[in-house]
Design a protein around this nucleic acid. Structure first.
Lengths: 250, 250
DNA sequence: TTGACACTCACGAAGCGTTACCGTCC
DNA sequence: AGGACGGTAACGCTTCGTGAGTGTCA
């Protein structure tokens, strides 16, 4: 003597569309009874199950996953939900990155940086984020917060200036590759090198240590980062500087 | 004399798949040159455009939207991005709700509430969120924060107890519908009513005002909420209580 | 007879992944 | 001549929305 519903009434009751019920029926997720004329007939237990389906869909599970959890308890619900939570958190992280990219690009353009258009700023911002995320694997917590502070002080113009100084430094080193690494002239280049690195580390030993690790692992950098610093991947220059530094030590 | 790339090399360079390039070519989003043999030939300008496409895709724009922005500047980029930011923020809000639902359901079950299973707790949690969001349209900021505090003190058992008290109150009122609204017995019911309402408002005038608005607009409640409080939608009881209260005033 | 509602196909949509089959280049 | 790489064509995946055409009657 229980209340029964036909498709439309049941759909309204549960807050879904008729088409959705048809779909769930077809894929075997929620199969109602049938009247002799072939009409779908839903009852209270169906409502309960549909509520479960809707809830899990709200959590972002696919219908296939829902079926595995509900129809036959093939998979443990707590485990699935824990996994789902991690997925959602990572999606949220991605969303945050996208939102931040738009916001910061808008802010930068509004603050009047006519050299780059909004779209270019966004591309830069995304690249920055990628680099930051990747590099954070090498820096410990102290270094990460220190770098965070540092970045707030930076702006694209500063960045461009520093890059230019490194470029000049490399030119100067390449010009003296034939000289004695211990010569005063070359040793002054070691000082310049120390100064340039110190400009980035700010003397922070945490940052310094992380930087060494980043550089040591440069073969594994993502393509975008590699490409961007390709001009500084001159093994000959680095070898020469290494010899110059060890000459200094003695 | 510019560098050219064929499909695979170009794909690696830009960090996308060959299939993606084929797709963009077919839908007219990024059309490379062709060699005599029909091979796709990409050059630097193509790379620039592809970077823009990838960036906008990162922000969640559809390929159609990207085409409208990039291929022919039919739509203003700043406007599109502002709209996109709002979309992303609303998606983020949805994600937060899903994550919160899982977290709180897990916590509630772990804290030992054997009456309800994890899945049921999630359904309750989602319903709660819906109600909260909907009701917040009626409460001002002060009332919302006050209610927020209140909810932290609540637990399902309390909720059940209060519901039971309202149920008893309705039974008692229905039993005296034929009596004089001004009789001492009925007037004591008015006191009980005041007390029950006060239990929810906590005497806060902001909450009180919001509650009145919520109740006045109960025809527009979402289906789920209506259904849940359906047992208290007894017009006869409310009319009788109104008469009893106006009898008290005189 | 006529609404109102029910049923079963079946295409469409977004963004590629994934064969399948065949030509080009070195 | 073989293997790496290029091309096109076309189905698959996901979750229903949206008709089209037709039957039922709570």
């Amino acid at each position: 003597m229980e209340t029964t519903y036909r498709t439309q009434a049941f759909a309204r009751l549960a807050g879904v569309t008729v088409r959705t019920l048809h779909h769930y029926d077809r894929i075997g997720l929620l199969k109602p009874e049938r009247s002799q004329s072939g009409y779908r007939v839903y009852t209270a237990p169906h409502l309960e199950r549909l509520e479960q389906i809707v809830a899990l869909r709200f959590l972002g599970l696919s219908l296939k996953e829902i079926r595995e959890v509900i129809v036959r308890e093939r998979r443990s619900l707590p485990a699935v939900l824990a996994a789902q939570r991690r997925m959602l958190e990572s999606r949220r992280h991605q969303l945050d990155r996208a939102i931040a990219a738009i916001e910061r690009a808008e802010a930068a353009v509004k603050a009047g940086q006519p050299t780059t258009t909004l779209l270019s700023r966004i591309i830069e911002e995304i690249a920055m984020q990628e680099q930051t995320e990747f590099m954070n694997r090498y820096y410990n917590d102290a270094a990460q917060t220190a770098l965070e502070e540092r970045r707030k002080q930076w702006n694209p113009a500063d960045q461009e200036k520093v890059t230019e100084e490194w470029r000049a430094f490399f030119r100067d080193v390449r010009a003296v590759l034939h000289e004695d690494p211990a010569s005063p002239h070359v040793q002054s280049l070691v000082d310049r090198w120390t100064e340039l690195v110190g400009r980035f580390t700010g003397g922070d030993p945490n940052i310094c240590s992380g930087l060494n690790q980043v550089w040591a692992d440069r073969d594994n950098w993502p393509a975008g980062m590699k490409q961007q610093s390709q001009e500084f991947f001159d093994q000959e220059v680095w070898d020469f500087m290494a010899r110059a530094r060890s000459a200094r030590k003695r």
